[in-house]
Lab assay of single mutants.
Amino acid sequence: AQASVVANQLIPINTYLTLVMMRSEVVTPVGIPAEDIPRLVSMQVNRAVPLGTTLMPDMVKGYA
Score class of each variant (00 low, 15 high):
31 G>V: 03
56 M>T: 10
58 D>A: 09
10 L>N: 13
39 R>L: 06
51 L>F: 13
15 T>H: 07
5 V>N: 01
10 L>W: 06
20 V>H: 14
45 V>F: 02
62 G>D: 12
34 A>G: 11
17 L>D: 00
51 L>T: 10
46 N>L: 11
53 T>N: 07
47 R>K: 15
30 V>N: 12
17 L>Q: 00
62 G>P: 08
63 Y>L: 05
14 N>Q: 09
58 D>C: 05
16 Y>S: 11
10 L>I: 14
48 A>S: 15
55 L>K: 00
39 R>Q: 12
45 V>I: 13
32 I>S: 01
28 T>P: 02
63 Y>C: 03
36 D>N: 14
2 Q>S: 14
5 V>M: 02
60 V>H: 01
11 I>P: 01
35 E>S: 09
9 Q>L: 12
62 G>L: 08
25 E>S: 08
52 G>K: 07
55 L>R: 00
49 V>H: 02
49 V>C: 03
52 G>R: 06
63 Y>P: 05
48 A>Y: 12
15 T>Y: 09
33 P>C: 03
63 Y>H: 06
22 M>Y: 02
57 P>D: 08
52 G>T: 03
18 T>I: 05
12 P>Q: 07
19 L>R: 08
22 M>Q: 01
62 G>H: 13
49 V>I: 15
45 V>G: 00
40 L>V: 12
28 T>I: 13
40 L>T: 01
38 P>R: 07
12 P>K: 07
58 D>M: 06
11 I>W: 01
46 N>M: 09
36 D>I: 14
25 E>L: 10
57 P>F: 06
21 M>F: 04
47 R>Y: 09
14 N>F: 13
18 T>C: 03
28 T>Q: 14
26 V>R: 05
60 V>G: 01
4 S>E: 01
20 V>C: 03
15 T>M: 10
44 Q>C: 03
45 V>N: 04
50 P>C: 04
23 R>N: 08
26 V>M: 06
20 V>I: 09
64 A>P: 14
15 T>K: 09
3 A>H: 07
51 L>H: 10
17 L>W: 01
50 P>I: 07
61 K>H: 15
54 T>D: 00
5 V>Q: 01
26 V>C: 03
64 A>Q: 15
6 V>P: 01
25 E>V: 14
8 N>A: 11
18 T>N: 09
29 P>I: 05
1 A>D: 08
63 Y>G: 04
21 M>S: 12
16 Y>A: 15
41 V>W: 04
47 R>H: 08
23 R>E: 05
29 P>W: 03
34 A>H: 06
20 V>P: 13
46 N>S: 15
7 A>M: 07
45 V>T: 15
51 L>C: 03
20 V>L: 13
20 V>A: 12
9 Q>K: 12
59 M>S: 08
62 G>Q: 14
40 L>C: 03
4 S>F: 03
60 V>M: 09
11 I>Y: 01
48 A>G: 10
45 V>H: 00
14 N>E: 11
30 V>L: 09
19 L>I: 14
13 I>W: 06
23 R>T: 06
49 V>F: 02
32 I>L: 07
50 P>E: 06
54 T>H: 05
5 V>T: 13
24 S>R: 12
46 N>I: 12
1 A>Y: 08
44 Q>L: 10
29 P>D: 06
55 L>T: 00
35 E>Y: 11
17 L>R: 00
2 Q>F: 14
22 M>P: 00
27 V>F: 02
28 T>Y: 14
14 N>Y: 09
55 L>G: 01
37 I>M: 13
56 M>D: 15
5 V>H: 01
13 I>Y: 14
7 A>P: 02
24 S>W: 11
32 I>A: 03
12 P>R: 07
63 Y>Q: 05
38 P>W: 07
38 P>C: 03
59 M>P: 00
50 P>L: 05
54 T>W: 02
59 M>I: 08
17 L>N: 00
36 D>Q: 08
55 L>P: 00
32 I>V: 12
53 T>P: 01
60 V>F: 05
10 L>V: 09
26 V>N: 12
33 P>I: 08
46 N>Y: 15
52 G>D: 12
60 V>N: 01
63 Y>W: 10
4 S>R: 02
64 A>H: 06
19 L>M: 15
26 V>Q: 15
64 A>R: 02
9 Q>G: 06
1 A>W: 10
34 A>D: 13
10 L>K: 06
17 L>F: 03
30 V>D: 10
14 N>D: 15
36 D>E: 06
59 M>Y: 10
54 T>L: 05
52 G>N: 06
16 Y>K: 07
43 M>L: 09
30 V>G: 09
53 T>R: 15
26 V>D: 10
10 L>A: 07
14 N>C: 03
12 P>F: 05
38 P>N: 15
43 M>D: 03
32 I>Q: 00
49 V>M: 04
55 L>Q: 01
34 A>K: 15
44 Q>D: 02
25 E>P: 02
46 N>T: 14
48 A>R: 14
43 M>H: 10
8 N>R: 12
49 V>G: 01
44 Q>A: 07
48 A>Q: 10
50 P>R: 11
43 M>E: 06
28 T>W: 10
57 P>A: 10
60 V>Y: 01
5 V>I: 15
15 T>D: 13
39 R>P: 03
12 P>D: 06
31 G>S: 03
35 E>V: 14
19 L>Y: 11
17 L>H: 00
55 L>S: 00
35 E>K: 07
31 G>F: 02
64 A>G: 10
45 V>S: 13
22 M>A: 00
8 N>W: 05
63 Y>S: 05
32 I>E: 00
5 V>K: 01
24 S>Q: 06
50 P>K: 09
23 R>G: 12
23 R>D: 06
21 M>W: 03
22 M>C: 03
61 K>G: 09
9 Q>R: 05
1 A>R: 06
47 R>G: 08
37 I>S: 11
58 D>I: 08
3 A>D: 12
63 Y>V: 06
44 Q>I: 10
61 K>L: 10
58 D>R: 07
37 I>N: 01
42 S>Y: 06
29 P>K: 05
17 L>I: 12
7 A>T: 12
10 L>R: 07
17 L>S: 00
28 T>E: 09
50 P>T: 11
33 P>T: 08
58 D>G: 14
17 L>Y: 01
57 P>Q: 10
35 E>F: 11
8 N>C: 03
27 V>E: 02
31 G>T: 02
39 R>M: 09
33 P>F: 12
30 V>I: 13
42 S>A: 07
53 T>G: 14
57 P>R: 13
2 Q>N: 11
50 P>D: 11
36 D>K: 09
23 R>M: 07
57 P>C: 04
57 P>V: 05
55 L>N: 00
27 V>Q: 07
53 T>L: 05
32 I>G: 00
55 L>W: 01
44 Q>W: 05
38 P>L: 07
13 I>E: 15
40 L>H: 00
52 G>L: 05
57 P>K: 07
